[in-house]
């Protein structure tokens, strides 16, 4: 595969919000939600961002299209950096990138029929309305029967709502679709249908996908690359197969081990990782994961690890990356 230029790339993207008491409209300190996140998505590539809640994965998706204003770093569209983070610059991004919200039903106008809702982005983008036939074709692409076009959002099931959201995203023929938890709350049988729809769209239009998910099984099957996030930082990223075969970061390893295996003979004696993601308000010193890490040493508590590159674009942010492939031996206790 020849490497194409990324559709969109974020370089050292940072998002901070003012936090704490305000004195004369001047916030006393800043709360960092994303720190130094660099992710690029190439045409036809599916990249998954995986992490627990509070890892900043949703914020990253929203920051890419300007729903949250980045406070540092750079976003490039087709290799051209946005001059600033103004509304005008993000309008350019939104012409190319569509966001599928986590809860599709609540992202619809309850008083608007599905057909009108699907056609709306084209009008906003200044590409005119849609003819009835085109609308039906578009709905069919998303696996939505034309009878559903005259319905209101409340009359759709979870799977149908998701398909309607995909149809709306496709109306402007985006080159990138950012899907926030596209399979959350769906039954396994419906989940497969939605993922297949993504794969079909990818094959037909060479659309790039940024999948924000906490479901590792989904990420393993559909994505080309995986980015593991924790407390707003990228801890590990690399080709999917490589990450699953040999996770380098103890956190990635713990995430993989946490997924319950549908096999009663392989029950776990101990939970792979204890505790929960610390609050953003008291970000741990050094490596953010050290409090829950089984192999943490003194250095981890003091010094934040830098990104270490491995082969194939696999990078890890850890002082003591693991080198045993997954499933070969249990994580060594430090």
């Amino acid at each position: 595969m020849t490497l194409k230029n990324p559709v969109i790339s974020a370089d050292h993207l940072t998002v901070s919000v003012p936090e704490g008491p305000h004195y004369f409209f001047q916030p006393t300190y800043k709360l960092d939600i994303l720190i130094d996140v660099s992710i690029a998505v190439r045409p036809g590539e599916i990249v998954s961002i995986v992490g627990e809640s509070g890892s900043g994965k949703t914020t990253f998706g929203r920051a890419l299209i300007g729903l949250m204003r980045p406070s540092g770093g750079q976003i490039s569209l087709d290799g051209v950096a946005l001059p600033d983070f103004s509304k005008g610059s993000f309008r350019k991004v939104r012409r190319e990138a569509a966001l599928l919200f986590q809860d599709p039903a609540s992202s619809f106008n309850p008083r608007q029929r599905i057909g009108a809702m699907i056609a709306e982005p084209r009008r906003i983008a200044g590409q005119g309305g849609m003819r009835r036939n085109d609308l039906q074709d578009l709905a069919a692409t998303a696996g939505l029967g034309s009878s559903l076009l005259s319905r209101f959002p409340h009359a759709l099931s979870g799977g149908q709502a998701r398909r309607a959201a995909v149809a709306r995203a496709l109306s402007v023929v985006p080159r990138l679709i950012i899907a926030d938890e596209p399979t959350a709350g769906l039954d396994v049988s419906v989940q497969g249908g939605v993922l297949n729809l993504f794969l079909d769209i990818r094959d037909r239009h060479d659309t790039a996908f940024l999948l924000i998910t906490h479901n590792l099984a989904v990420a393993r099957h559909v994505s080309d690359r995986i980015v593991i996030m924790y407390l707003g930082r990228v801890l590990e990223s690399g080709p999917t197969a490589e990450i699953f075969r040999a996770p380098r970061h103890p956190y990635t390893r713990a995430l993989l081990d946490s997924e319950p295996v549908p096999d009663p003979k392989r029950r776990r004696a101990e939970p792979p990782v204890i505790g929960e993601v610390p609050s953003l308000m008291n970000r741990p010193s050094g490596c953010e994961f050290h409090q829950r890490c089984r192999i943490a040493r003194d250095r981890c508590r003091i010094e934040a690890p830098a990104e270490t590159p491995f082969a194939d674009g696999h990078t890890v942010r850890c002082h003591f990356p693991l080198d045993t492939p997954a499933g070969v031996c249990a994580m060594a206790a430090g």
Partner: peptide, 23 residues
Amino acid sequence: KALFACELSLIETGISRMPVIDH
């Protein structure tokens, strides 16, 4: 059987399309 067939964590990678239940 169909439910098990749809469980992604039981499937080897490399499939081009995900299984669905044909009700």
